[in-house]
């Protein structure tokens, strides 16, 4: 399994570097724009008053929401979305392609003729997805650490949550895409479905915040599980959401595993 992990990592590291650069770069850009906006917040507040409260709620600026005038709130509104939405896209692409690429390229015929069990193949690949996502968030966490330390007193809990809560969301998208890739082996189709999921659930998240009648929808969107206001104001991820996340990831991986063990490899 070690060699498989090594080879898999080698195959994926270039895209890891690219995605990490984009996500950490955008997050960093927004963070370091903070001083430029800091002085114009008075105007901004007037500006914000024009908008209906539901709208502000949807972007985390409503009551009990985020305070844009300090760096933690600013990042929650202006930078965090990059880590969740783009990071989620990366996770979905990675999770959706790690198995299906081998089937699409038909290299799976080689891999599964080697003395390695399908369980090890699958979990080796899952480990690689986990490591890649961890590295992504680790790099982001360094950017955050620097910015937070410069612009405010470092709040370790908020910093760590901002750094690693997205990992939960990314893991959800990666594991769901992995499950999809068991049924749909064409890489391209898997990726469309996976990205649809990432964007679709973001829209669901917006809708759940915009109207009270649709509030129940928040339970099905990972964006709500790791939302910024809870991180900044309560210094936590809600236990119910944490439990739901673990369940979704666990069930998706177990299903993938059981199905993969019985799957016919097509030529």
């Amino acid at each position: 399994m070690k060699t498989l992990i090594k080879a898999e990592f080698k195959r994926n590291y270039k895209s890891l570097i690219l995605w990490t650069a984009i996500i950490a770069g955008l997050a960093g850009l927004m963070l370091f724009l903070f001083p430029a906006f800091e002085n114009s917040f008075e105007d901004m507040e007037e500006f914000i008053d024009i908008y209906p409260p539901e709208f502000l709620e949807a972007f985390g600026m409503g009551e009990g929401g985020l305070d844009m005038t300090e760096i933690y709130g600013w990042f929650g509104i202006e930078g965090y979305l990059f880590v969740t939405l783009i990071g989620g896209s990366y996770a979905a692409i990675l999770g959706g392609s790690i198995l299906s690429k081998e089937e699409d390229d038909k290299t799976v015929e080689f891999l599964l003729s080697k003395p390695i069990s399908r369980t090890k193949v699958l979990f080796g690949k899952v480990i690689v997805v986990g490591i890649n996502l961890f590295i992504l968030n680790l790099v982001v966490s360094i950017v955050l650490l620097i910015a937070f330390s410069i612009f405010a007193k470092l709040n370790v809990a908020v910093w760590l949550l901002y750094s690693f809560a997205p990992l939960i969301l990314q893991a959800i998208f990666a594991s769901l895409s992995l499950l999809v890739s068991i049924f749909v082996t064409k890489s391209r189709k898997v990726l469309s479905i996976a990205l649809g999921l990432v964007i679709g659930l973001y829209v669901v998240d917006l809708i759940s915040k915009l109207t009270e009648e649709a509030e129940f929808l928040k339970y099905i969107t990972p964006y709500e599980y790791v939302n910024a206001p809870t991180i900044v104001n309560d210094h936590m991820i809600k236990p119910l959401y944490l439990l739901l996340s673990v369940l979704i990831i666990g069930i998706a991986i177990v299903f993938t595993w059981r199905l993969y063990l019985k799957k016919d490899i097509k030529t």
Partner: peptide, 20 residues
């Protein structure tokens, strides 16, 4: 099957290996 494959060599009819 894992133990079997440990003792087997296989040339598939169509060769698809890692291009990179």
């Amino acid at each position: 099957s894992v133990e079997i494959r440990n003792n087997v060599g296989y040339i598939p009819s169509e060769i698809n290996y890692y291009g990179e």
